[in-house]
Amino acid sequence: MLGLFLAALLQVVVQRIGSVFDVEVMAGSIDLLLVIVVWIALSSGSVGGQVVGMLAGFLSDGLMGGTFGLYAIADTLVGYLAAVLRQRVVLQRSVLVLMFAAAAAAQVLIVMSLNFLFVGGSEPPSWIAVGSRIVTTAALGGALLAIEGRTRSEWGLWQRRRRSRLRLK
């Protein structure tokens, strides 16, 4: 939940920077909430992925200002699918970065489909916006995984040292 809160806060910051400096591509290509959804789905499973996906989706809906509920459905599905895929297929950590890219693409596809089905007639996003969103999500996910791996290894090393010290005493 803390990660979700921080992601929402950073997402607001990104949107604000994008609106202040009039960089629409920047605001549209970064979705930190989706990165958090995929990360939690990969690390905690499908239940966590779905719940966090729904919450993050509703937050995105509240932030985006479009039809309310589209991103909630998309992020719930993405969180579930990412967790299921992670359970079914054994993937290296480096390849997991592709999961973030696939999740971004899936989210865009689901939102577009829902838009077409329920709202209708909405203009699809440009290829540049979609591409930059996929690349940015993959890059942010890769960075998050690298930080997580580094933190875990440091934590394990610290715990081993602590145990060895306790044995010596």
Partner: peptide, 26 residues
Amino acid sequence: VINDRGSRWLLVILLIFEFGVLSRQL
């Protein structure tokens, strides 16, 4: 059980809820 079967039910429940929210708005 939660991960395998329950998660599917949970997904269905969440999607029904979300579609409800979406359809109510529309």
